[in-house]
């Protein structure tokens, strides 16, 4: 009946919001309070002087931490752990980095184009020694475009659940089951937007191809780094990062 369907959707929404709150890594209020706490000129120079390998290793470490929170988010999402393990892994392998990029908009100050990194807000120039200017610019542009949508925490929660539970990912075993969960999350997202009079958001969401392109750009840059510094990846990068991207 429409009523019990409505109750089900409401339960799902509450579950997604709770899962997100418990795994969001940094509280929005804290990020907001610190948004003008930027690295000093000297600190930026110190980062820029770091060897490329060290800076890659640090960034891989921060990405891996963020991904661990995304895995916890997935595990708490109602229905996710009912999927077969192959499909859980397929969805996380394809979607974890995309969710990290979506979550990053909370830690981005669009007024001065800085992102929260290792304790303070950093501009794109801080990442110079990585040697991937284009990738960093694309990520900053993406964060800037998401910030323009003025996502609420509930919207980030539901949108990131939908980025993760995507029945179009290749190699799924039980696509229908993933599609069903995706369908329920999609309804929950739409109900939330209707209730908050934010339906206009749907037309402004980034197309899936944009997130996919950013993730491939990251993997391409990692391959280029690997050619330049063979061995470093295996010796010094977090195993989870290697498993997902190498």
């Amino acid at each position: 009946s429409p009523t019990s369907a409505g109750v089900e959707i409401e339960h799902l929404t509450q579950n997604v919001l709770k899962s997100y709150r418990e795994t969001c890594q940094l509280r929005a209020e804290d990020l907001q309070l610190r948004r003008w706490d930027t690295f000093s000129r000297e600190e930026v120079c110190a980062y820029q002087r770091k060897p490329m390998e060290e800076m890659w290793q640090r960034c891989a470490g921060r990405i891996t931490e963020a991904i661990q929170y995304v895995v916890e988010f997935a595990k708490r999402l109602r229905g996710f752990m009912d999927l077969c393990q192959n499909d859980q892994i397929v969805l996380l392998k394809a979607g974890a980095m995309e969710v990290v990029l979506v979550r990053m908009c909370r830690a981005f100050n669009a007024d001065n184009r800085t992102v929260f990194f290792e304790g303070k807000y950093a501009g794109a120039e801080l990442f110079r020694s990585l040697g991937c200017h284009e990738l960093i610019s694309s990520i900053f542009d993406f964060a800037q475009s998401l910030c323009a949508l003025h996502f609420s925490e509930s919207e980030v929660a539901l949108f990131s659940a939908l980025v993760l539970v995507n029945a179009n990912r290749p190699w799924l075993q039980d696509q229908a089951k993933v599609a069903r969960l995706q369908g329920h999350l999609d309804v929950a997202f739409r109900v939330l937007l209707r209730r908050t009079r934010r339906e206009g958001l749907l037309a402004r969401l980034p197309p899936p191809g944009r997130l996919r392109a950013l993730c491939s750009q990251h993997v391409e840059q990692l391959q280029a780094f690997r050619r330049l510094h063979p061995g470093v990846l295996h010796a010094a990068f977090p195993p989870l990062y290697r498993e997902l991207f190498a």
Binding site: Q68, V71, K75, Q85, I89, L240, E243, L244
Partner: peptide
């Protein structure tokens, strides 16, 4: 092949 993801998924919520 995805040893660590497997392990993370199998661990209880922590």
């Amino acid at each position: 092949k995805h040893r660590i993801l497997h392990k993370l998924l199998q661990n209880g919520n922590s």
